[in-house]
Amino acid sequence: MGREILLRPERCILCYACEVACAREHGGQRNVWVVSADGGGVPVLCRHCESAPCIAVCHTGALVREGNGIWLLPERCTGCELCLWACPFGAVGLDLEGKRAYKCDRCAHREEPACTLTCPSGALTYRCVADFAAWRRAVAGREWAAGLERRGL
């Protein structure tokens, strides 16, 4: 199973390392936006949706699904911005100079995405879904066991 960029958003410390790393890897243009919310933060980036609104609206086939991801082919992009409107997460950007859309490509030019490697707190992770879910279950299990213990069960 392929690895994806999966978040533990409660760990986000609003340090913006992911933004700076992503910009560095992509010629100054970042594909991740850290949104500040209630004292914490959430890095927002393309979810590579199974049933993707961006692909649905793209009239030139610039957005394609391949493997476990969605890839943007800049040479086909006309900069119409429809994908930007359609993405429910605001995870598509527009390069105003080149008039092309851009979005997270999971650092296709690297072995592992820079954001997941750089995240100091471990909020951004590069795992397959099964591993990630198992992780979450381990923590939840401990919580529940402790709760049950407190109730004498």
Binding site: C15, Y16, A17, E19, V20, A21, R24, A114, L117, T118, C119, P120, G122
Partner: peptide, 22 residues
Amino acid sequence: VGVEYLTDHPVALGALCPKGNV
């Protein structure tokens, strides 16, 4: 010309804050 992440560092596990990234 750039930085890379060294995942075997015992404290950072390769991570870098924004300053380290540039």
